Simulated assay, not measured.
Amino acid sequence: MPEAAVDASDDLWPAIRREAQRAAAADPFFGKTLAGAILTHDDFAAALADLIGRRLGSRAERARFTFFSRDAFHDEPDLIEAAGRDLAAIARRDPAVTDLLPPLLHYKGYIALQAWRVSNWLWRHDRRDAALLFQNEASNVLQVSIHPAASIGSAVYLDHATGIVIGANVVIGDDVTILQNVSIGRSSELPARSPRIGRGVYIGAGASILGDISIGDLAKIGAGTVVTGDVPAGCTAVGNPARLTNCPETVSAA
């Protein structure tokens, strides 16, 4: 069974370590990086907290981001469970990778999402200045801005992950894939409420999803589509303004 098939959190960390050990043996120079990033840590939570610190903070600020991340993961182990499902989801969905180690080390969308998980924990614990600091740094360094007050499920994949903006109070379900330059947030119309994205939704590059609307489970949003109305489950939305296509028969007949 390939390492990418690993999904359970108890098996994830040993699989990552095995990949790191093989890579270090194959390339001693790269092995030094792997030793610091993976092999010196006792568990996935410690390694992930360190990686968040490395990606977000300068040398002087790295310890602060790592500390906040460790605090969050220790207090709420479900964050690590979700992080594991996010990582396994990349290995399942991205045809360019077959292992867990490359997206963990190199995919900025993955680190941006885990930094958001920490910022959301901080927000929920009324540490809002720290939460907004995470959002600001992720936006500046990784070009991904997710408001700490958003709600995001697990097994979520931010693919390419440049120019993604997710606003406050947006709700995103499990197994969602979001490509680059996507905006999800409130419209200018009142009342100013945010979109709700269902399970298994695919959102193409450059799409905008705006306002008090629902995107149903397993819907697809085409590249460059502007969505300001509900999209029923299983439908595909394309164009500006969005029009529906490929809907299940039960939706089309409704």
Rank of each mutant, 00 (worst) to 15 (best):
S69L: 10
Y110H: 14
K108W: 03
V97E: 02
D86T: 02
L100K: 08
T98F: 12
S58E: 14
P102V: 14
A115Y: 05
I52F: 06
A46L: 03
A49I: 05
F67E: 13
L104D: 04
G84L: 07
D75Q: 14
A83T: 00
L56G: 04
D42Q: 13
I80C: 03
R59I: 13
A91V: 11
P103H: 06
L113R: 00
D75P: 02
I80G: 00
L48D: 00
A63I: 12
A112R: 10
G53V: 12
R55T: 10
N120E: 12
N120T: 10
A88Q: 09
D42M: 06
S58P: 04
A46M: 03
L87N: 05
E61R: 15
R117S: 04
A89K: 02
R55W: 11
I80D: 01
A83I: 00
R92W: 10
W116Q: 02
I52P: 09
I111D: 06
A89Q: 06
A89D: 11
L101W: 07
A91Y: 02
L105V: 08
R55N: 13
D50R: 01
A83N: 04
A96R: 06
Q114D: 06
F65L: 14
V118D: 02
E76R: 07
V118G: 01
G109E: 02
E61F: 09
F73P: 02
P77Y: 11
F67C: 11
D94L: 11
A46F: 00
L51M: 13
D71I: 00
D78T: 12
R85C: 05
A82I: 02
D86N: 15
A49L: 06
A45Q: 10
R93I: 07
F44T: 02
G84T: 11
S119P: 01
L100T: 04
I111Y: 04
L87M: 05
L87F: 02
A115M: 09
R64V: 15
T98H: 13
P95T: 13
R117G: 01
D99C: 09
F73A: 03
F44D: 03
L105T: 07
R70D: 10
A88W: 03
L100A: 07
D94F: 10
W116M: 09
A49W: 01
A47N: 01
G57F: 08
D71W: 07
A72N: 05
A91P: 01
L113Y: 08
E61G: 05
L104G: 04
F44P: 08
L104C: 06
S58A: 15
D99E: 13
A96Y: 10
E76G: 03
P102G: 06
I111S: 12
H106W: 12
F44Y: 14
D71L: 14
S69M: 09
L113S: 10
R85N: 09
L51T: 03
A82Y: 01
R54S: 04
G109W: 07
V97P: 05
A91E: 05
P95D: 12
I90F: 14
Q114N: 14
F67I: 01
A60I: 09
R70W: 00
A112G: 13
L79H: 01
F68H: 15
W116T: 04
Q114I: 07
K108G: 06
E61M: 12
